[in-house]
């Protein structure tokens, strides 16, 4: 719900990229509910939480971007961003597995989550850069800022790839069934 209202807020503010992020995250969260027509078959709440954190961080810093933001603020948003994008990558993996012909095994899924996070960060910065050129209001700082951002997503992506691999193994069977959630390699026709 929080994600829904923040996305609406971002759409109203014409914050195109974050609105797009919110919208795709929402789609991934809602898709299982629609596909199974069961309101309780949503992805785990932890993931929704991770997805909403960078959006909140973004909204709260959007009020006053230049003043009063502490030094570590950028790092914090970068980490939150990488965790969220790894989560999007993971949900994408699971849902591709559940609803399409795509089949992956554990290690391929791990690699895909990592790769997805790094690539998403790259596309994100390119879009931000192009957006800055179009509006004449560059927002992404200098080269070093972008590189630090990439370092965080690189680390975060690798970490989350491993964590999600362990997470699906550790998820109790009952909860897994309740959520309609399976390990990539356990999905059969």
């Amino acid at each position: 719900m929080a994600l829904f209202f923040s996305t609406v807020y971002l759409v109203i503010r014409l914050d195109i990229m974050w609105a797009a992020f919110g919208a795709s995250a929402l789609c991934l969260l809602i898709l299982p509910i629609i596909m199974t027509r069961d309101p309780f078959k949503a992805p785990p709440w932890e993931m929704a939480l991770i997805l909403v954190i960078p959006v909140f961080l973004h909204i709260s810093s959007a009020w006053d971007p230049a003043e009063g933001a502490p030094m570590w603020w950028d790092d914090l948003t970068a980490i939150a961003f990488s965790l969220a994008f790894a989560t999007v990558g993971f949900l994408l993996t699971v849902e591709l597995q559940l609803y399409t012909d795509v089949r992956m095994n554990g290690s391929f899924a791990l690699f895909f989550v990592f790769m997805f996070t790094v690539a998403a960060a790259g596309f994100w910065k390119v879009f931000e850069y192009v957006g800055g050129l179009v509006t004449g209001d560059p927002t992404i700082g200098d080269n070093a800022d972008v590189m630090i951002f990439f370092v965080w997503t690189f680390v975060g992506g690798a970490l989350m790839g491993v964590i999600y691999d362990l997470y699906v193994k550790a998820l109790p069977e009952s909860r897994k069934r309740a959520l309609g959630f399976t390990r990539p390699q356990e999905v059969t026709e």
Binding site: L96, T100, D101, V102, R103, M104, N105, F108, F112, M115, F116, V118, A119, A120, A121, G122, F123, N143, A144, M147, F150, V151, T153, F154, Q185
Partner: peptide, 30 residues
């Protein structure tokens, strides 16, 4: 056998893969 990747997914994968390599490359340069 455990992996099946339809062509549409392959295309997406390649685009993401190239971008990930590109970002890693820039990180290496940095």
């Amino acid at each position: 056998d455990s992996i099946r990747l339809p062509p549409a997914f392959l295309a997406v994968f390649i685009v993401m893969f190239t971008m990930a390599i590109g970002v890693s490359w820039e990180l290496m340069e940095y």
